[in-house]
């Protein structure tokens, strides 16, 4: 799925009748990588796209699941299962080595730090 959007949506946006919302996500740092965990409940691997471009990652996913027509809604807290998240990753990520894994509705994106961005040990002479 390609997009021409150039800015990150602050709130849900409507495009082609799909309403995207920004998923909840967490960021964790280690010496070698930055881990981003994005909650995408209801979306399967085939319904998910991750693109890396212009120092940004874009995650888009929307569940094809539709509620059966004869179901009556008694109470609803969930939003539509269509998610979009754009994150700036900057210069210090090795873009070619980005990895992503979807498990139990959570997409884990591993952003390895570029060699130049890793902490360097300086030899003392």
């Amino acid at each position: 799925m390609n997009t021409t959007m150039t800015c990150q949506p602050k709130e849900a946006t409507t495009e082609n009748t799909i309403t995207y919302s920004q998923p909840r996500y967490y960021v964790d740092q280690s010496m070698d990588d930055t881990l981003v965990q994005i909650e995408l409940p209801g979306v399967s691997k085939d319904e998910l796209n991750l693109t890396v471009e212009n120092k940004e990652i874009l995650v888009e996913g929307s569940a094809s699941y539709k509620l059966p027509e004869n179901w009556k809604v008694l109470h609803r807290e969930s939003k539509a299962r269509a998610y979009r998240l754009r994150l700036r990753i900057g210069d210090q990520v090795d873009q070619a080595a980005i990895k992503a894994q979807l498990s139990d509705g959570v997409l884990t994106v591993t952003l390895p730090k570029a060699e130049a961005a890793k902490p360097q040990k300086v030899k003392i002479t």
Partner: peptide, 14 residues
Amino acid sequence: AIDLFEDEASYIVH
């Protein structure tokens, strides 16, 4: 987030 639905035969919780 929890949803509750019903159809003729069942209640369904997501």
